[in-house]
Each structure stands twice: as C-alpha cells, then as structure tokens.
Design a protein around this nucleic acid. Structure first.
Lengths: 170, 170
DNA sequence: AAAAGATTGTCAGTATGCTGTCAATCTAGA
DNA sequence: TCTAGATTGACAGCATACTGACAATCTTTT
C-alpha cells in the first residue's frame, strides 16, 4: 500500500491557502481605507477606537482593547496618537486610581462625523469586484467564521463581558 | 422629500464591516499559525518566503517581494532573520552587482519539509468552524476578491511579470 | 561615451500587533 | 486587618507593514 504522497512544496499552494488570502485581503483592505481617508490621516485602528469610544464614553483602555479586539499593549500608543491629535482625552477615574477614562473631544466627535462617508466608500470598494449576491455571501461567511473562531486569538475579554459594568452595552 | 438618514455611528456597524472582519480574521489566522508552528519558530511571512525561495531558487529580494505580495522594505529584515537562523543564504549575482540571489540552505529545506504538516493543520483549523461546502464557497470568493483587487495595494510587480527572467515560472 | 532614467538593496521613520514584565492599585479571603 | 491574588496601564523587545529617501549600479537615450 503506497503512502499518501506529500503535497507538492510550491508557492501556488500558498496562494490558495486561507492564511495567505486572509493576509492579502487585510493588506488590500487597509490600503483602500488609507486611500479613501487620507484627508483625515486616520488609520483603521484609530477609526475603530474613535467609534468605540463614541459608543462607550468613559470606557477604559483594557475594555476598549476587548471591544475592538485590539492588543492591550499596542493600544496605549494608539491612544497617545489620538490624544496628540486632540481627538481623545483621558480623565482619571475617581473610584479607581489605576484607570483612565476615555472620552472623545469635540474635535474627535466632529472628525468622526466627517469621516464616515469616506469609510463607507472604502468598505464598499473592498467588495466592489464581487456581485451583490457574492458580497452578501462572503460577509455572511466571514462574520460566522470570525465569531466561531473568536477564542482562537488572544483577546482578554469578550466584548459583551467587557461592557457589563458600563451599564447598557449596546 | 426627507434626506436619507445617516447610518448610526456605532461600534456594531464596525463589527459587520468588511474591513473589520478582514482584520480580525487575519489576526485569528496568524494566531492559529503561530500556535501550530511554535515548535519551528517561523512566522507566516517567513514561511511564505521560504516556500517562494524553494520554488524559485536564485530569486532576488525585489522579485520575492512581488511573489509573496510583501513590502520590499520589510523584506530585508525578514531575510536577515532567515539568514540568522541559517535557513537562507544570499549570493552576489555575477552579472549585476546590485542584486543578491537567495537560496535555501540544507537546513532551510529540511525545516520546510518538516513544517508542512503543521502548516496544513493551521490552514485547516482556520476554516474548521465552517461546513465543507461553506469552506469551499468562502475560499472561492476570497480568491476571486483578492485577485480582482490585486492592484489596490501597492505591490511593485505582478508575480508572473516578476518571474519572466527566471526562465520558467511555475 | 555621456547624460538621463530606472532598478536594487538599505535605511529612517511611523504604526500596528504580539509576548512578557513591572509597579501601583484594587479586591477577596483568611 | 493583613495579605495573596487579580487588574490596570506602562514599558521593553520582537516582527510585520508602509512611505519616502538614498547611494550604488545598470540601462536607455542621445
């Protein structure tokens, strides 16, 4: 009985692999986002942070990192940059000296309103090459896969759990 | 005639957005890859580089960056790390003093053979939560989307063009 | 052959993204 | 209460990713 042949070691196998396609698509998505939003000088991550702070004013950095599935260590520098641009401010929490609460500044809220159309354009452009039916199918499968794989990457808290203490979460 | 209402500014809109799902899935994919391949201490990008050099021995860094859709600037340090691990060696090109040709070392080729099963496991795990039909559908749509969006992110050369001078490309 | 232009690898600079560690602080248990 | 454990934000260190610049070198044009 012959042993099962090894798959050929070839770059073409990489091109069809899920990991390659996810990496490449992420690359493309960021590139399109930056292009559409270049007038605002905001990265995708900074945008996500602004939205999350807008949705949950007074959130702290640890919970924010859970809400946008973003590494806690890196988030510090992201917030610093948003602070430097005067989009975000941090206030000490009265009942816990370790925590700094995050709020949008007036400028941050204004930028958020203005950037939304550009972000919508970027999101649309990412899927533009597909037919409408295919777009829906892809987004459905991606949402499902991300949700079911949520535990696979180290995110300290599930978003819902992270928000329990903030009163209502959504 | 009332104007079309703005979409609500809310983190939930982000969760359903293509850009967020692509970023999150890439995060998950890398995490799974690292976990399955931790015995080999190879990152996804380093793995892709090894495969590409194996497929195209004597490739130079610029063409390699096109083949794996990888930024040319970053590639230098990736190769350095592969060289430090003695997986790759660089030889000067006799006919062009600017170019350094890339080859796998014996060790690099051996590692590549050994790591393949772990990589296969990783790739399988990424899609595991989906049903077989859904996996095929998702990979089909992703391959299509990445292909049609190829120009959207700055890759200096298309892979096929990059390989013309190397004789046969695949 | 000389000038103009393109290519190659490298570097500086910025921004994620991750692991691991740490001091300050808060909380729960003995 | 006192202390063991957990949490928070900060940091160090590594590895992508990208822009833009540069000297060395090669190619094309004149």
């Amino acid at each position: 009985m012959p042993s099962k042949p090894l798959p050929p070691i070839t770059i073409d196998a990489v091109y069809a692999a899920p990991g390659y396609l996810f990496r490449r698509m992420q690359q493309i998505a960021v590139s399109i986002f930056i292009e559409e939003c270049k007038a605002f000088d905001l990265t995708p991550v900074q945008y996500a942070a602004l939205i999350a702070i807008h949705t949950h004013p007074g959130i702290d950095a640890t919970r924010l990192s859970a809400v946008i599935a973003f590494d806690r260590s890196t988030l510090g520098s992201v917030i610093e940059r948003l602070q430097a641009k005067d989009f975000v401010e941090r206030k000490p929490a009265p009942e816990d000296k370790r925590i700094k609460l995050l709020y949008l500044t007036k400028l941050g809220a204004a930028i958020l309103r203005e950037i939304i159309p550009a972000v919508e354009r970027a999101q649309a452009r990412m899927l533009e090459p597909l037919k409408p039916t295919e777009r829906k199918a892809l987004m459905g499968l991606m949402a499902q896969l991300v949700d079911l794989n949520n535990e696979a990457s180290r995110v300290p808290l599930r978003a819902e759990d992270a928000l329990e203490h903030l009163g209502k979460g959504g």
